[in-house]
Write a protein that binds this DNA or RNA. Structure first.
Length: 295
DNA sequence: AACCGTTTCAACCGCTCAGTG
DNA sequence: ACACTGAGCGGTTGAAACGGT
């Protein structure tokens, strides 16, 4: 959307921190007139800022409904899990955290979560190393490792969930072996995998009446169809650590899928809108053994 | 109290994408 | 088809706050 050139006279724009007066001017103006064109907002609001700066200030600080203060444990886990799936797609991650901005999440990631995740991964590697060097049961491994790590790691957010997930993966694995590799993964409706944006945009899928999924597989914009779908299916499934489906994600399936040259229409034939897809379908389509989900 | 290194977070910058003429 | 422009996004910066000595 373009604005009239008359709306943007040449002004020496102010930079730096916003004063309370500036905040008040911007807040009043946007609440009263909206922000159909950000470049005209500073002019009409009597601010010596550029439109970009006003937009950022509104979105990150002044917008109603913003949640200030510390992140909750649940929010941390949501960020961690979404970041694993989506990467540095801060705006997409922010869409799943009401009242949080992409900038806030990004800052929190760099200042807190990245460090915590590094410690968790370090611990996970340590545990896996223990697993490969001993044939004892998982209970023995857990107790021996936990006793040595009890001081720091057990107090980290997400630790309990991670351990629950690992324990569950372990028990699921045993079940799997007993059942002769009969899948214990939940069936997920394909419709549930689709994000609202994908359905509405029509770029990746049509209106939903035809049994057709993405015609172009991955594309550069509108993010990645499968990636989005997986992330949403993931969220709909559990919304946190601990699900069967997530076990696959945490143990490398997600990386396998995202790193592959996966073409949905080519690889999974005969699956349409509303059909159910299991981990088996994905694994077989990728020529992957289902074991990859339970490393 | 003063200094210094580290952390946090608001804001800026540069880029891409989409809409418009 | 092309150029221009605004919106939006992610990476980066730098000032302020904090903590240790």
């Amino acid at each position: 959307m373009k604005c009239k050139s008359s709306d943007k006279p040449k002004i020496k724009h102010k930079k730096g921190l916003w004063s309370p007066e500036e905040d008040q001017r911007l807040r009043n103006h946007v609440l009263k007139h909206g922000h159909a064109c950000w470049s005209s907002v500073p002019v009409n609001a009597g601010l010596q800022r550029n439109g970009k700066s006003c937009r950022l200030r509104w979105i990150n600080y002044l917008r109603p409904g913003l949640k200030r203060g510390m992140f909750t444990l649940q929010e941390e886990e949501t960020i961690l899990t979404l970041h694993r799936v989506l990467g540095n797609k801060w705006s997409q991650i922010a869409q799943h955290l009401a009242g949080r901005t992409d900038n806030e999440i990004k800052n929190y990631w760099h200042s807190h979560l990245k460090k915590k995740l590094a410690k968790l991964e370090e611990m996970e590697v340590h545990i896996k190393t223990q697993c490969t060097t001993t044939t004892s049961s998982s209970e023995n491994i857990d107790s021996s490792v936990l006793s040595s790590n009890n001081n720091l790691t057990t107090q980290m957010p997400g630790y309990d969930s991670l351990m629950n997930h690992m324990e569950k993966s372990s028990s699921d694995n045993n079940d799997l072996i007993q059942e002769g590799h009969k899948s214990s993964l939940p069936k997920i409706l394909f419709a549930e995998w689709l994000s609202l944006e994908n359905v509405q945009s029509g770029s990746s899928v049509n209106s939903g009446h035809k049994p057709v999924v993405s015609r172009d597989g991955f594309n550069t914009h509108n993010t990645n169809f499968l990636q989005d779908s997986l992330s949403h299916g993931y969220l709909l499934n559990e919304g946190g650590f601990g699900g069967d489906f997530q076990a696959g994600f945490h143990n490398g399936l997600m990386d396998e899928i995202l790193n592959s040259e996966f073409k949905f229409e080519d690889q999974i034939s005969g699956i349409g809108f509303g059909d159910s897809i299991s981990g088996d379908d994905i694994c077989s389509s990728l020529n992957m053994n289902n074991d990859v989900m339970y490393l």
